[in-house]
Computed example of a mutant assay.
Amino acid sequence: MMATETAPDEVDLSIGEPDQPLPGVLVEAAVASLRAGRTGYTPKLGLSDLRALVAEDVEAGTGFRPDPADVVITVGGTGAVAVALAATCAPGGAAVVPDPAWPNYRVLADRLGIAVLPYRQGPSGDAFADLDAVEAGLRAGARLVVVNSPSNPTGAVASSAALRDVVALAREHDAFVLSDEAYEAVVFAGGRAPSPLADGGHDRTLAARTFSKTWSMTGLRVGALVAPPALREAVAALHGTTAGCAPVTAQLVAAEALRSLPGRGAELAAVYRARSERAVRLLGPWAPQEPVAALGGFYLWVDARRTGRTSAELVAALRGHGVVTSAGTVYTAQDGYVRLALTAPDDVLDAALATTRRTLDALAAEAPAPR
């Protein structure tokens, strides 16, 4: 998705990067750290103050307070996911992964020699995960179940009950759950997304978090992995030898974010809920059918199969009209979908969504009638 640059007259809705700038207080924290000469290594597992602040934030969102010794500051949420996969699954092993899903799970697993066993990721609520497929994967020997709520690409939010069921299956089969919580603070119904760290699931859960989305820190590359004590040694060894440490400036900015901007997620949720509601009106029949209030994050998962076009053809047609999107086949083997990131200023976004509607309408009109 990031292989080519967009032209000046194109609107890029392909990448999940918030269009809100880095808040001023965080800019000042970054500048102050550089002026103070804070450019060296930190302890491999991260600054102790930041690890404690992450533990406090986890408690605020889930009710469970991890030991800061089990919090590792990583190079973005991607680094947290990579360490979690490697810490739980040996080469030749397997992980159970949602479909559709962020593609890095599959790419990382493939590079680590880990088989991917898919399960259908459903709508928000109790039907979020296909538990029969999850259990089948665990019976086949998988050591890890990945959940991502709110979901990239669909925005679906798992219920607490759905996550408890996944944890129960993992415990029954002596496996673990990787909860990718990149968007956990951007929930349209308010509050924060349920986490398997709650309700007694912390002994089986590795939670991957990131500062990229909530605080517009995508390029600073800082995240966190919260892991059970049983995996403390493995997580520390993997992170320390592959990353050394997360960038010190990013860690200092992350600490300031947690201290100074605790309500940032609620602010973003209001922005993206409003954009999602407008998108539903502008896209009409192409908008997802699930109520906006049930979703989170900042993506739209568009089912355009009735155009009769492949995902690649849809992306090419939309780009021909100046709208850059992400092909659905990045996230699933099912063809005919595209993902839109609602990460452009409102007026620009609205124009791009109107163009998307006209383009899909025209493609559907050209599609041959079903036999």
Rank of each mutant, 00 (worst) to 15 (best):
H239A: 11
P98V: 01
R209S: 07
R139V: 14
E366R: 14
W286A: 03
G155Y: 04
R371G: 13
Q289A: 15
Q20W: 13
P100A: 11
A142W: 12
G76L: 06
A364C: 11
E184P: 00
V248G: 00
A168M: 03
S14T: 07
A364H: 11
D19L: 00
T154Y: 05
G297W: 09
D303T: 13
T241M: 05
V147P: 03
L220D: 09
G223F: 07
S276L: 02
P288T: 10
A133F: 03
D165W: 01
F211I: 03
E277Q: 15
A115M: 02
A3L: 15
R278T: 13
D9K: 02
G92N: 09
S124Q: 05
A170K: 08
A354G: 06
S149I: 07
W301I: 10
E366T: 08
A294V: 00
A351T: 13
F188W: 13
V11P: 03
A185W: 15
A317I: 13
A175E: 05
P100G: 11
E28W: 04
D19H: 15
L45F: 04
A352H: 08
T329V: 15
A80F: 09
D347N: 02
G93C: 11
V81D: 08
A208D: 06
V226C: 06
T249S: 08
V186Y: 03
G141C: 11
L283I: 13
R371T: 09
Y105M: 10
L268C: 02
V226W: 01
P288Y: 12
D203Q: 13
A246C: 08
G200N: 03
W286M: 05
P229A: 14
G322N: 11
A94G: 09
E267P: 03
A312M: 03
G190T: 08
R339M: 15
